[in-house]
Structure formats: structure tokens, C-alpha cells
Design a protein around this nucleic acid. Structure first.
Length: 1128
RNA sequence: GGGCGUUUAGCUCAGCUGGUUAGAGCACUGCCCUGAUAAGGCAGAGGUCUCUGGUUCGAGUCCAGAAACGCCCA
């Protein structure tokens, strides 16, 4: 360990600075590489990293999940297990395109086509590389150990890609240099020969998805659908069901009421209501609820039909009800549409001989509108499905970018989102307008760009999820299952452990209700869907891989060769139609990005190239991701693809965590000023503080992230830090080192109960944390760690202080150092997965610097619980726990009596049920523990008494969980008798309460206070204190008070821990005489070489203390000479 | 409309398979302790454990219903 890392141990550590030094240390020493080498032959533990989208710097929310990922990998590394350590970046898809477009200032797909698809796709790749580099740096800062690419290398590839993708480049791979064109090297990132993180844009990833899709097609599950779907006109793409929910937002739309003239009832109109005026030209029907009541009302010269329940809200002005009818009466009535003359409307209706009419629909309500619903199957999802059922014509008026198509006359070319005022105006002119008022409602928006969605009828590609059978899962037959992918996936879900458990229910619920998986997107950057569709005959073929494509290619292969399987190059390849022989092009669509992430258990595990390797690492033992979003995203795509390809779970255990919010409970938003960037947080609080905060939370609860919470987290870490600092300071003073201590070398059990207790607790810590982390419970682990550190600091150190500083017994001092050293070193190892930096800091000082044979990093140590069992001492731990309860009671008594702790008292009695601290405790240990108690609460003598003592009453505590069932309804009487202490003690420990006999094992006999004494009790532990003070006790109290004041004076004078002093005490002679017996101890405590009983020389630091026996002026100045007090 | 979750002190949260007196941290008040500790301790104040009903000798805990909030599906 270079000296520069640790000079002094600061009281207020600079965690971020320490962390940066540790990062340097790991880098210089190649610590991570050596860890991998050390574990290379160990058993396998397979972690699969869910890819982080390489599109922005990572945020503190990512750091939450990545803390889990890192801590479990580190933990399993400490168990000696071999791992893959591969991080993943999600690279393809609309989210990257949107940002590239924004940077280029593009507003539509036309801009992209004009710019050039090849250049655009290249920019998307470059963006992914840019942010992969940034996120790599950030993740390293977080302490994540992964097989990272050098961020500068990623940036170099990006820059080369920008200048000329075809130039040759050489990169360093694990088995030597790899040479290829830049484009192909980028396409091979993460592959075995290149190494580093996996990128979902890789050739292998894309190729294996082709294989998956071809398999789906082979089973008949891949189809072209025509659906009305949410559509983002800005992005020019359909939005899948999976993405739809990402973007609901309140929106104000026109609430437009239109009147439609009934053909066979002159002068009468239907009133319909819509919030999307642009859909009115696509109207084909008006729906009424068959069970609703409808009324005919008169307003002036006009007569309207509308739902009875909407009279008050829908109608404007006075009205007169003429007639009421059930909805079914209206069905079949014909009306004139407002835009019947538009060519598209005319031809659509004429084709099937249709005219506008009233239909019935169960979903119609009177909650809003008029109770008569405008139906436009070409412009709404529900309308489309209803229209299909009823065979209504479909009028699909919009283009990809949301403008009216040809055939709509004056509307053609207008933007549907902006057309409302013109439609309203037009309706007014035609006399079809009734009323308009703004209407605010939840409306779907594009989850990436925020644009309000439209509905269009379009061609998209789907994977069929299969039928939903109307019966319990257990009754679905094997044959039905074979037809329905969703049930096959459910069976796979059954075989996975979901943490928390409700994740299982939610995934099943998603599978039960989900519609077919839309896998196509009419975009540019992404998986090129391997579907070649023949325009001549309508048949299509799905190509299962690059090689297969090469075999089928009839033209364009040369253009594609040497390129990654992306647009536009792959589009050049044509094949011959199997059915009709025509030359066929690929459909232009790209794939849903969750396909990219779902194939990862195959593409990154060399599924195709090295089946043995794949079989060793599949399925993953563990994945962890945020629950809310991923049921329908990554979990789903992993499950679907693994089910199709192998019918096996892709992972065994999943740990889900919730959502991160700002400290004010709201989502983090830059514009709200409550957002915290990862880099800022890392440098302000330090990443260990952040990691500790994450590890301590229940994963399924949302986290409120901020500097306030970080402060609490930091304070907890400081307790460990200060314990470490205590050790370091006194070990330096004493010249103690791990190798100098005899106790450490001998390996024998230390004599002191405190030491044995701490070692027992230490062993328990290592065992328990092992168990909690093996069970994927970081919170459980951190609670145990916190409890241990508190015990160490607030009990072991507090009680052991003198053993480290002014100990006349060198063996005892050594034992104390050795014990504390051992405990701290173990804490360092046990906390290492969660707090990789702080623990490394500790370990370097505690172990690595002094022991050249030890591993040079805490992360290279083995989990420290091998000898745990023999170090445990349950009786001692239990006895100590009881003792510490007695301490609390004694403190309470002192507080009540107004006796400061420095004032000794004569006696304390401790009454316990059996008269013992613990039945299994040896006499020697028990008496040593009682000495601890006496010291801690400053009493001269402690006596252990049983419940029969005169000082206490015996009481009986019935053990309810045991007697409850037997005694039943008589429990209240029994308890009342126990409370009143109305007990009959029988033979063999039996008792009778309220006439009911209870066995010895059914009760606990406790001592309880007798009224009128200074007594405190807590569930059977009773402490009684003699609070009378003798002159001797007062004098001793005064001496300790004085000692304390002098210590303060030393601190004020900024003396160091081992500076000697000359001491002056100026007071009444008689008073000083009364302190005589305590002055040697005082001199020892304050390192006084001499005590002058006279007024101090002027100018020396002094203090006046009011004591029980009088006033003392104490003064000191630094002295030279041996540390022995010479008494005057 | 359906599914999942949450609801305990001013705030953040513990409360294991039901056991009679519901806890911790932060913040507040008083006292104490302290030559590792910006730490810690004792005490005080702060609760109709969201509500209603049920099971039970006994419910924060189990069951049913409701409400509010969040997420998901339709």
C-alpha cells in the first residue's frame, strides 16, 4: 500500500475523494482482473444484466438497480464463484432516433429520408456509443465491477464511424487483436473475440432475433394485422400496447356536440358528442345503449334525440320532453352523415351498399356526451373492433404523418390535430353544429415525444399470443396449451422465484390479458424485421439468419455485404417469392426494441456458436430490474423468447424494485428543480453513502432520494468510520500491529468476556449476512450490519476504552486490540459487496498494509464465516443482552434520582427470573458480566438476586401463545389474576391462577418491583438501586467530575492524546484532603506527572469547577518526563 | 370495469407464523455521557395502527367489504 493513501484518519472523512483514490488503486493493481482469474475455476453463478438504454447519462434511479447488480456480483465473487461480469447497453429503437432527430432539428420522417437513412442510422449508432461511454464512466464511479470497454475506445470507434465506416481498424480483444472495418467492429462489440459490454445493436443479437422470428413463423404465430392503433403522427409510427401506458396525460380537447338529421323522421336530429372532431368525416354509425332510455325533446323548431340521463348536461337552453323510448327502438334508424359527399366516404359506403344508421352497443354510457356515440371504425380502436363485428365500412382518413389523405377534398393535406376549428366552422355553415365547450380528460400521448396520439388503421406485424381460454389454467389441456403461447409462458413463469412475491401475480395477470405482440415499427433505426412480403401474390417469408438470407438472395447481396444488418443496406437484398417467383423486397419496418433485449440470454451466451458455453450459463441465476415497467417489457420479452426457443425459464430468480422519486415525493424533473444528477450526487455524498441508502431500503417501496436522506445514511457509515478511527489512533499510540499482538498469533480464545462476546457477534454477523445476501435480501443484510456496528461502537468500545489506553496488563491490551482488529476486518469483508470503497479503505489499513501474505484487496478475500460456528457463544450473547437491558434500567433510575453517572453509588441489585443472567453461562463469565455492569453504571457493588428476594415481588407471566388454545375463553380471568398477583404456587413450578392450573412451561415467573423503592423493570428484569450517598462516595464523584473538567481543559489546550501535563489544584485544603484517595487515578486519567496543591501560575489554562465539597480551580501546562505521577 | 400494491407518530419507515403496554430514526424539549464519535444514552411530548363488519378468549397482524393514493390491464 503506497503511503500516500493513508496518512492520518480524518474525523470527517472526504468520502468522494477516498473513493477516487480507491478507483486509482484498483486500476493500478488490476484488482478486478485478478479477482476474475482467482475465481475462474470456481462454481458458476450466472447474472444477466438487463441492458441500460445508451441514450442519456445514467441517473440516480439507475444507480439504485446497479447497486443491487454490483453487490450481488461482488458477494458471489467473495464466495469464490465464477461469473461473466458482462454489462449490457440497449441501443436500438425510437428513443435514440428521437434524440438524433432533435439534434438535427428534424420534425418529421421526411427530413430523415432527405438526410439519408444510412447517415441517420450511423448517427444513431454514434449516439449509442457516446452514451455507452458516458454510462461506463459513471458506472465505474459507482463502483460497479464489470468487464468494461475503455470509454475512450468507444469514443474512438464512434469518431471513426463518423468519418468512414468502411476503414479498417484493429481493436484489442481478450485473445488478441481483432481487425475489421469500423462498422463491423462496432457490430461485433461484446462478442467473445472483442469482449466488453454487449450492445443490442450487435450483429449476433439481430441475427438471433431473426431466428426467433422465423421460429414463430414456422409455428404459424407471425402474422400481418390490420388494426386501428394509437399512432404518433410526429414519430410516424404506431404505438404498441406495451408503450401505450407510458404516456397518459391530461389534455384539453374540444367537446363538440354535432346534430345528425334522421332520414325518415324529418325535422328530427340525433345528438352525438366527440372530443376528436377530425374523426367526424370518418363517421359511419351512431351507437345507442340497448338498456338506456332515450328521449325526444323539442327546442324551438328543432327536435332532438338523446339519452335521457344526459338531458341536463348535453342540452343547451330550455327544452320540452316529448317522448321517451328504450335504446333498442332507435336501432336501425338511418341518418345523413355530415360529410357524405366526400369521395372517400361515398365510395366506402357504395362498395358495400351501406348508409349511416343507428346501431346498438353495450358500452354506451351516459357518463359524458349525449348517450349516442359517434362511431368511426377508421379512426378509433374500439370503433374499429365494433365495426369489424358488425361489418361496418372503414373510413381511414389519415396518412402516416397525421394528415388527411386524398379523397377528402378540402380536408386533404390538413393536419388532423389542428383541424378542429375548421371542422367546427364548416359544421356551423352546414347547420350540423350544436354546441362546443372545452373538455379535459386523460388522453394517450406518445411516450417518447409527448405528442397526442391519433388512431389509424394500419398494417403491422404481430406475434400471436394465442387464445385466452375461458377457464382456470389448471383445466387448460396440453393440446390447447400447444396452440397458445401465453399459456406456455405462464408455465415458465411458474418456475421462477419472484421477489417480492406479488411480481408473480402481476406477470401472470399481464400474460392473461395481453393482446398479440406488435413487433413492427415504421421507422429506421432498429432490428430489420426479416420479413420479405410479395407484393404480387401477398405471401411472405421470414428469414432466420444472415446465412439463410445469403442463400435466398437473388439480388442486392453485394450491396449488403460488409454491413451490419441495418437499414438501408439490408433493404437492398431481394429474394424470390416461393409462391409466385416474383422478386420480393423486405418490408420496411424495423422491430420492437424489446425484441433486442429479450434475446440477450441467447446472444450474449454464445447460443449459436458455442452451445456448451451457453448451457453452462443458461438460465441466469439472477436478474434484477425495476418492477413497474418491466412486466410488459423486458421480463415479458425474455420469457416469450426463451419459451419459444427452449421452453425454459431464462432466469431463476428476479428481484424487482420500485420507483425513485425526489425527496419531495414527486418524480424528478429538471424543470421542477428537484432533480439530482448522478455525477453531482456521487461527488457530493459519495457513492458508498448512496449505495448504503439503496441497500437499506425495502426494494418494493418507492424511494425518496435526496441529500437529507443521504445525510442519515452518511451518519450511519460514520459510526463505522469512527470505530475504525478509534482503533487506528490507539493502535498507533500503543505501537500495536496485527503481527505484534500475541493473542492474534496464538489463535487461542481470549479471556475477556467482552472480547469473546464481540467475536461471537462477529461470527454471527458473517453468518447472517451470508444468509441474507444468498437469499437476495440486501435490506436484511444491512439491518444486521447496522445493529452490529452499533453494538461494536456503543457497547464494545465504550466498555473497552480503558483497555486500549491505560492498561497495565499488556496481554489484556493485546487481546483487546486483536479482537477489535478482527471484528473490524470482518466487518470490512462483510460490508464489501455493499460498500466497496469504504471497506477497501479500512481493509488496506487494517490488513493489507501490515500483512504481505494477505490478499491486497478486501474484494479478493473470502467470505469470513468459515469458522463461525465455533466462535459463537449463545449463552454469552444472551447474557449480555439481558445485561444491557439492566444498564438501561439503571440509567433510568439515575435519571429519576437526579444522580449523574459520574457520581458513584453503593449498591445495585439485579433481579432476574431464574436468578441468572443466562442459565448456560459459566459462573466466571456471569461475574465478569456483572463487573461490566458495575463499571458502566458506576456502582460499587452489583448483587444478582432471584425472584424470591425480599426486595421484589414474584409475579407470574402466563405465556399466551402456549396457554391460549387450552385455556380459551378463560384467558381473561387468568390474566386478571396474574395482574392482581393472585397466584398460588404449586409443586414442580406449576401455578394456579383463577382456579386454573398451569404447567411450569406455560408460565414465566418474574420479579417485579415492590412499591416504594428506587426500582425499574422491563419484562422480568428488575433493577434496584441504593441511592444514599456517603461522604466517601461524594468525594469520589467530585474527583471524577474534576477529572472530566481537566480532560476538557486538555482538549481546549489542544494537547494530543499522549501529552503529559503539570496540574494545579487550588481549593480549600480540607476539601483537597478529602479527595486524596482519588488523586492518583485522576493523575493517571489526565496524564498528570505532578499535581501542585497551590494557585496556578498566571497565564496557565484553567477552569473553575463547582463540586459537592467545594469549588476547585484547576490549571495545567504541558510537562516533560515520565508518565508517572509524583504525589505531593 | 378487472388485476397488483400501499395506507402505523409532524416526516421516513420497523412490526416474524394473531398474544393483552404498537416500536425506531429524523425533527422538538429537558437531563446525562464523552480524549474515537457532527456520535451515543435516559426521560418527555407526539398514535381512534385509513374506515366498517367478521373470525377469535384475544386483531396493527387473519377474512370480507369500503375509501384514498400509486402502478398495470380493459
Amino acid at each position: 500500500m503506497p503511503e500516500r493513501h493513508f496518512r492520518a484518519i480524518p474525523a470527517q472523512p472526504d468520502f468522494p475523494a477516498q473513493e477516487r483514490r480507491i478507483l486509482d488503486l484498483w486500476r493500478e493493481r488490476g484488482t478486478f482482473a485478478r479477482l476474475r482469474a482467482k475465481n475462474a475455476s470456481g462454481p458458476k453463478w450466472s447474472f444477466l444484466d438487463g441492458p441500460i438504454t445508451a441514450n442519456h447519462p445514467m441517473g440516480v434511479a439507475h444507480a439504485w438497480g446497479r447497486t443491487y447488480k454490483d453487490l450481488f456480483q461482488r458477494f458471489h465473487a467473495m464466495l469464490g464463484e465464477d461469473q461473466r461480469w458482462q454489462n449490457g447497453f440497449d441501443c436500438q429503437g425510437l428513443w435514440v432516433e428521437v434524440n438524433v432527430e432533435r439534434e438535427l432539428g428534424f420534425t418529421s420522417k421526411r427530413d430523415i429520408e432527405a438526410y439519408g437513412i444510412a447517415e441517420f442510422v450511423s448517427l444513431c449508432k454514434q449516439r449509442a456509443l457516446t452514451y455507452a461511454a458516458v454510462q461506463t464512466e459513471q458506472s465505474i464511479r459507482l463502483g460497479m465491477w464489470m468487464e468494461w470497454n475503455d470509454p475512450d475506445e468507444l469514443r474512438r470507434l464512434r469518431d471513426l464511424l463518423a468519418t468512414d465506416p468502411t476503414q479498417m481498424v484493429t481493436v484489442a480483444g481478450p485473445d488478441g487483436p481483432v481487425k475489421d472495418t469500423v462498422e463491423m467492429i462496432v457490430g461485433r462489440l461484446g462478442m467473445p473475440e472483442v469482449g466488453g459490454s454487449y450492445f443490442t445493436f450487435s450483429n449476433e443479437n439481430n441475427d438471433l432475433i431473426w431466428g426467433f422470428l422465423a421460429e414463430c413463423h414456422r409455428r404459424g404465430w407471425l402474422y400481418k394485422g390490420h388494426d386501428s392503433m394509437p399512432w404518433c403522427a410526429r414519430c410516424g409510427t404506431g404505438i404498441s400496447q406495451m408503450e401505450m401506458n407510458e404516456g397518459y396525460a391530461d389534455r384539453e380537447d374540444p367537446g363538440l356536440t354535432v346534430r345528425l338529421p334522421l332520414v325518415d323522421r324529418p325535422g328530427e336530429w340525433l345528438l352525438v358528442w366527440t372530443t376528436t372532431p377530425w374523426t367526424i368525416p370518418a363517421n359511419v354509425a351512431a351507437a345507442v345503449g340497448p338498456d338506456l332510455r332515450y328521449v325526444r325533446v323539442r327546442q324551438g323548431r328543432d327536435v332532438y334525440w338523446l339519452g335521457k340521463g344526459t338531458l341536463r348536461t348535453a342540452l343547451q337552453g330550455p327544452f320540452e320532453v316529448l317522448e321517451e323510448r328504450p335504446g333498442t327502438d332507435l336501432v336501425g334508424w338511418r341518418y345523413s352523415g355530415p360529410y357524405d359527399e366526400l369521395p372517400q366516404v361515398r365510395s366506402s359506403f357504395a362498395e358495400i351498399g351501406y348508409s349511416h344508421r343507428v346501431i346498438e352497443w353495450d358500452e354506451v354510457t351516459e357518463d359524458e356526451g349525449t348517450g349516442i356515440v359517434h362511431i368511426a371504425p377508421g379512426a378509433g380502436a374500439e370503433d374499429y373492433h365494433l365495426g369489424r363485428t358488425l361489418g361496418l365500412p372503414v373510413i381511414a382518413p389519415l396518412s402516416q404523418d397525421g394528415h388527411y389523405l386524398a379523397g377528402y377534398e378540402w380536408l386533404t393535406g390538413l393536419d388532423a390535430q389542428a383541424v378542429s376549428p375548421r371542422i367546427v366552422e364548416d359544421l356551423q355553415r352546414r347547420g350540423s353544429f350544436y354546441h362546443l365547450e372545452p373538455h379535459t380528460h386523460r388522453y394517450p400521448h406518445c411516450w417518447r415525444c409527448g405528442t397526442a396520439l391519433l388512431f389509424r388503421v394500419v398494417d403491422e406485424w404481430y406475434i400471436s399470443m394465442g387464445e385466452v381460454y375461458d377457464k382456470p389454467r389448471s383445466e387448460v389441456t396440453a393440446e390447447e396449451k400447444a396452440r397458445s403461447l401465453r399459456y406456455q409462458i405462464m408455465d415458465v413463469v411458474d418456475r421462477i422465484r419472484w421477489i417480492p412475491g406479488f411480481g408473480y401475480e402481476r406477470e401472470l395477470d399481464w400474460l392473461r390479458t395481453m393482446a398479440d405482440w406488435m413487433i413492427s415499427k415504421k421507422r429506421y433505426w432498429g432490428l430489420a424485421l426479416p420479413i420479405w412480403e410479395c407484393e404480387a401474390c401477398g405471401s411472405f417469408e421470414v428469414i432466420g439468419g444472415r446465412e439463410e438470407l445469403k442463400q435466398h438472395a437473388v439480388e442486392g447481396w453485394e450491396e449488403f455485404e460488409g454491413h451490419t444488418p441495418h437499414r438501408p443496406y439490408v433493404d437492398a437484398v431481394k429474394i424470390a417469392c416461393k409462391a409466385c417467383g416474383a422478386v420480393v423486397s423486405r418490408i420496411k419496418d424495423v422491430g420492437n426494441p424489446w425484441l433486442d433485449a429479450g434475446i440477450v440470454p441467447f446472444s450474449t451466451l454464445h447460443y449459436r456458436t458455442d452451445p456448451d458455453h451457453w448451457a453452462r450459463w443458461f438460465p441466469a441465476d439472477f436478474i434484477t430490474e425495476s418492477f413497474p415497467g418491466q412486466f410488459r417489457n423486458w421480463f415479458y420479452s425474455l420469457l416469450a423468447m426463451s419459451t419459444v426457443l427452449r421452453n425454459e425459464p431464462p432466469f431463476k430468480t428476479i428481484l424487482g424494485y420500485a420507483t425513485l422519486f425526489a425527496e419531495d415525493g414527486r418524480p424528478m424533473h429538471k424543470s421542477w428543480g428537484n432533480s439530482i444528477e448522478f455525477n453531482e450526487a456521487a461527488e457530493r455524498m459519495g457513492v458508498d453513502v448512496m449505495r448504503w441508502m439503496y441497500a437499506r431500503r425495502r426494494p418494493e417501496d418507492n424511494i425518496l432520494f435526496g441529500y437529507g436522506a443521504a445525510d442519515e445514511s452518511r451518519r450511519e457509515l460514520l459510526v463505522l468510520w469512527h470505530s475504525f478511527r478509534f482503533f487506528f489512533d490507539y493502535a498507533c499510540l500503543a505501537g500495536w500491529t496485527a503481527s505484534s499482538g500475541t493473542a492474534a498469533r496464538s489463535g487461542g480464545r481470549p479471556a475477556a468476556v467482552l472480547d469473546r462476546w464481540l467475536l461471537s457477534r462477529t461470527a454471527a454477523l458473517a453468518e447472517t449476512v451470508h444468509r441474507e445476501l444468498s437469499d437476495f435480501d440486501p435490506r436484511g443484510a444491512s439491518l444486521v450490519i447496522k445493529a452490529f456496528v452499533d453494538d461494536l461502537s456503543q457497547w464494545y468500545l465504550r466498555r473497552s476504552r480503558r483497555r486500549f489506553s491505560r492498561n497495565d496488563d499488556p496481554a489484556d491490551r493485546d487481546a483487546a486490540f486483536a479482537t477489535l482488529h478482527r471484528a473490524l476486518a470482518t466487518v470490512a469483508s462483510v460490508c464489501a459487496p455493499i460498500l466497496p470503497f469504504l471497506t477497501e479503505e479500512l481493509y488496506q489499513v487494517l490488513v493489507a498494509q501490515g500483512d504481505p501474505t494477505a490478499p491486497d484487496s478486501v474484494h479478493l478475500t473470502r467470505w469470513p464465516d468459515r469458522d463461525a460456528a465455533e466462535e459463537r457463544d449463545g449463552a454469552l450473547e444472551a447474557g449480555m443482552a439481558t445485561l444491557r437491558r439492566a444498564v438501561e434500567l439503571a440509567r433510568t433510575l439515575r435519571g429519576q434520582a437526579g444522580l449523574r453517572l459520574r457520581q458513584p453509588v453503593a449498591r445495585l441489585w439485579l433481579a432476574l427470573p431464574s436468578g441468572r443472567l443466562d442459565a448456560a453461562l459459566t459462573e466466571a463469565d456471569e461475574s465478569a458480566l456483572l463487573t461490566l455492569l458495575a463499571d458502566e453504571v458506576n456502582v460499587k457493588r452489583v448483587e444478582l438476586i432471584g425472584d424470591r428476594s425480599e426486595l421484589v415481588e414474584r409475579r407470574v407471566k402466563p405465556l399466551l401463545p402456549i396457554i391460549g388454545r387450552r385455556v380459551g375463553s378463560q384467558v381473561p380471568q387468568v390474566m386478571a389474576a396474574a395482574r392482581a398477583n393472585d397466584v398460588e404456587y404449586l409443586a414442580d413450578g406449576r401455578v394456579r391462577l383463577a382456579g386454573i392450573e398451569l404447567e411450569a412451561h406455560e408460565v414465566e415467573v418474574l420479579a417485579s418491583p415492590r412499591p416504594g423503592t428506587a426500582v425499574a423493570d422491563d419484562d422480568g428484569v428488575v433493577v434496584i438501586m441504593d441511592t444514599t450517598l456517603t461522604p466517601e462516595l461524594r468525594a469520589e464523584g467530585d474527583a471524577r467530575e474534576l477529572s472530566r473538567a481537566i480532560q476538557d481543559l486538555r482538549k481546549q489546550a489542544e494537547l494530543s492524546l499522549d501529552d503529559r501535563i503539570e496540574l494545579w489544584l487550588d481549593a480549600e485544603a480540607a476539601f483537597l484532603d478529602s479527595l486524596d484517595g482519588h488523586l492518583r487515578t485522576l493523575a493517571d486519567d489526565t496524564l498528570a506527572t505532578v499535581i501542585h496543591r497551590e494557585p496556578p501560575p498566571s497565564g496557565t489554562p484553567h477552569v473553575e469547577v463547582d463540586l459537592a465539597g467545594g469549588r476547585v480551580r484547576a490549571a495545567l501546562r504541558p510537562a516533560r518526563g515520565p508518565r508517572t505521577a509524583s504525589m505531593p
